[in-house]
Design a protein around this nucleic acid. Sequence first.
DNA 1: CCTATGATCCGCT
DNA 2: GCGGATCATAGGG
Length: 226
Amino acid sequence: MTRNAAPPARRSRVSEALPPSFFDRDTEIVARELLGAVLWCRTPEGITAGRIVETEAYLGEHDPACHAAGPGLTERTRPLYGAPGIAYVYFIYGVHWCFNAVTRDHGQPSAVLVRAVEPLEGLRLMRARRPAAKTDRDLTNGPGKLCAALGIGPRHNGVPLQAPPLMITPGTTYADDAIVTAPRIGVSKAADWPLRWYVAESGFVSVRDRARGQGPGARGRVKGRS
DNA sequence: CCTATGATCCGCT
DNA sequence: GCGGATCATAGGG
């Protein structure tokens, strides 16, 4: 008798998604552990997905670089104050959308910005959405780029991340020595807080640190000062 | 390879 | 009015 084959890859994606409890922890921990997880977006055009290789933590009202610092709870920052495990999608520089996973419990406006993913699924769709990308690494190596490539936009603001259209599922696990911690990119306040994490060996990170020569393709470059 | 600059809107002061 | 959790392009080395 043939064994009744349990369809291996057919488990429900909903049950695979990282649960809200994953996000209801210190934001630094969530940012670190999201490296390797897979971000999925389903739209009428198709499904795209990428492995998260770069994140940043934003730590609430007392983090000067966090959107909740200063203004506190406003219409814009409302999702930041919402439940752990929902999306916070914001508009920046009049052009781009950026995606965050909200962390910690209600009332604690913290989140993890996803800054880069490695394209895994729906490459054709990503290329169509990002005609300016010369190479596949240009598809998703930046917070605005990955939102464009995956099709993430304002309609995803505030949605849960445990079911389509937006989902984050477990993926690769990295040892600590495969991860680099560095200051955040593009912030003018609290610019030296080391709240960025990325996969050292990944070629899909937005900005690599100088003088960090490990792995193939790493540019061990140091800014010349003479 | 690198640095500089314009684009283009929203939310808050 | 201004600055922003950015990106694409132009130009120089």
